[in-house]
Amino acid sequence: MKALAPGTVIFHRHRGYGVITHVNLLTGWISARFGSESRTLDLNLSTDEVQFADGEAILFRRAPPERMPHARLMAMVRSLHAAGYEKLYLYSWPKPSGLHWRWHLFTGQRNWMQRPWREGWYGSGADYNVNPVMGWGDSPGATTEELVHALAKFDPQGLARALGRDEDHTAWFADVCDALLPGYMYSLDMEKPAASGLRDMPPVPVIPVRAGLPAYDGPDIGWPPGWAGLWTRAHVMPAPKIRLAPQEEEER
């Protein structure tokens, strides 16, 4: 899509050619001047059939917008898995308010509890609502292929760490994508155990990525490989290694 900014020449089927004087992409409204220097007309990009001067349509939110980018990220990760970058993992979890979901792409060794220690790329649905980009030089509405190329160009060294085989996770992720895309995403938020101890493992929570979609009623989604044991032991980070002083090492 071409740039849309004050000064852009547009065409309207009832008003003819005009010039944009103001743009509000958060609401989808523009102001334009058609032949009069003193009078502007407000137009809605979703319903007023505004075109660029060369006849290309200006389309804005014809369908309900995504509230979160996770489904697009899932499609991108699946594409990278197919290209051999199988050590790439997508972790999703809600903010404490529950209004938005965060995401974290990380690479290398698959260890869900030590995920915060892994290098990767982060984002939040709250930021995405205002500026719908992932943050690595992509553009709003970029296709899966465009997202892959943008990430590879932005951080080739980071993406190179995802090269390798993880067949169990890749198979699980492909099944999840088949069940959920394009309208739903998963959340790996682990409920805190009740006072009586750890509860049985429930299905993975599934959330729609667009407003107006019904609640998910498809098959239950299992937890990813390497997750099952987290329900049967305490979630304690490993202790740092004990380093003995040189004198103590000699005595030993």
Rank of each mutant, 00 (worst) to 15 (best):
P64W: 04
P64F: 07
P64C: 09
P65A: 13
E66H: 10
R67K: 04
R67M: 06
R67A: 02
M68I: 12
M68C: 10
P69K: 08
A71I: 09
A71P: 02
R72Y: 08
L73C: 11
M74I: 14
M74F: 05
M74R: 13
A75I: 00
A75N: 08
M76K: 15
S79T: 00
S79R: 15
S79W: 01
L80I: 03
L80V: 01
H81K: 14
A82P: 03
G84Y: 08
Y85L: 12
Y85P: 03
Y85W: 02
K87P: 05
K87D: 04
K87S: 07
L88R: 01
L88A: 08
L90H: 04
Y91D: 03
S92Q: 03
S92Y: 13
P94R: 04
P96A: 13
P96V: 14
S97P: 07
G98E: 01
L99R: 10
L99S: 14
H100N: 12
H100G: 00
H100I: 01
W101P: 03
W101G: 01
R102K: 06
R102S: 10
R102C: 10
W103T: 00
W103I: 11
W103H: 11
H104R: 03
H104C: 03
L105M: 15
L105S: 06
F106L: 05
F106R: 12
T107H: 06
T107C: 12
G108R: 14
G108I: 04
G108S: 06
Q109V: 15
R110C: 14
N111A: 09
N111E: 07
M113V: 11
Q114L: 10
Q114E: 15
R115E: 04
R115P: 00
W117K: 05
W117L: 05
W117H: 14
W117E: 11
R118L: 07
R118A: 15
R118C: 13
R118M: 13
E119Y: 05
G120M: 12
Y122V: 11
Y122W: 14
Y122C: 07
S124A: 08
S124C: 04
S124W: 01
S124D: 15
S124H: 11
G125M: 07
A126M: 06
A126L: 06
D127P: 02
D127I: 02
Y128P: 01
Y128V: 13
N129S: 13
N129W: 15
N129A: 08
V130F: 13
V130Y: 12
N131M: 09
N131V: 05
N131W: 13
P132E: 04
P132K: 00
P132I: 15
P132V: 15
V133A: 04
M134H: 06
M134Q: 05
G135L: 13
G135R: 08
G135M: 06
G135N: 08
G135K: 07
W136A: 07
W136V: 05
G137T: 04
D138L: 09
D138W: 01
D138A: 03
P140L: 08
P140S: 12
P140T: 15
P140H: 13
P140A: 03
A142L: 03
A142Q: 08
T144Y: 02
T144G: 04
E145A: 12
E145I: 04
E146F: 03
E146P: 05
E146V: 00
V148H: 10
V148P: 02
H149P: 00
A150N: 07
A150R: 03
A150Y: 02
L151N: 09
L151G: 09
L151D: 15
A152P: 01
A152M: 13
